[in-house]
Design a protein around this nucleic acid. Structure first.
Length: 105
DNA sequence: ATCTTGACTCAAT
DNA sequence: CATTGAGCCAAGA
């Protein structure tokens, strides 16, 4: 068997992210653990950043573990994420999401 | 192979 | 609540 990096890691992440229901959000570290990556929370962001166009991955449902957006407030990415979140019924205040919305189970 | 950087997290101050 | 330092791991130069 190949011991090289498994060519399904990104896919696993996408699956986990896709498993997040609308109106809820999850943290990077959380997604990492659910995907079986352990502490590779940073890998999640990297994988999402590598996503090609036309993807169906709700990357905007993934935020920091403290409920804050991973982008600096006022940035284009930030506003895009907030717009998408609010479109799903998630309340974003001062770059933060209520802990009630955090995690879905 | 080494150094730097990053859509991270946590604890201490 | 802001800052700092350390831990963490993988990709790019």
């Amino acid at each position: 068997m190949d011991n090289a990096t498994e060519p399904g890691k990104d896919q696993k992440i996408w699956q986990v992210v896709l498993a997040i229901p609308p109106g809820k959000v999850a943290g990077y570290g959380q997604v990492a653990e659910m995907a079986g990556l352990g502490r590779q929370a940073r890998y999640i962001g990297r994988a999402l950043g590598k996503l090609p166009q036309g993807h169906a991955i709700p990357w905007y449902r993934v935020i920091r573990s403290n409920g804050q957006i991973a982008f600096p407030q006022g940035s284009e990415r930030y506003r895009e994420q907030v717009s998408l979140l609010e479109a799903e019924g998630v309340e974003v205040v001062n770059g933060r999401v209520a802990m009630s919305r955090f995690q879905w189970r």
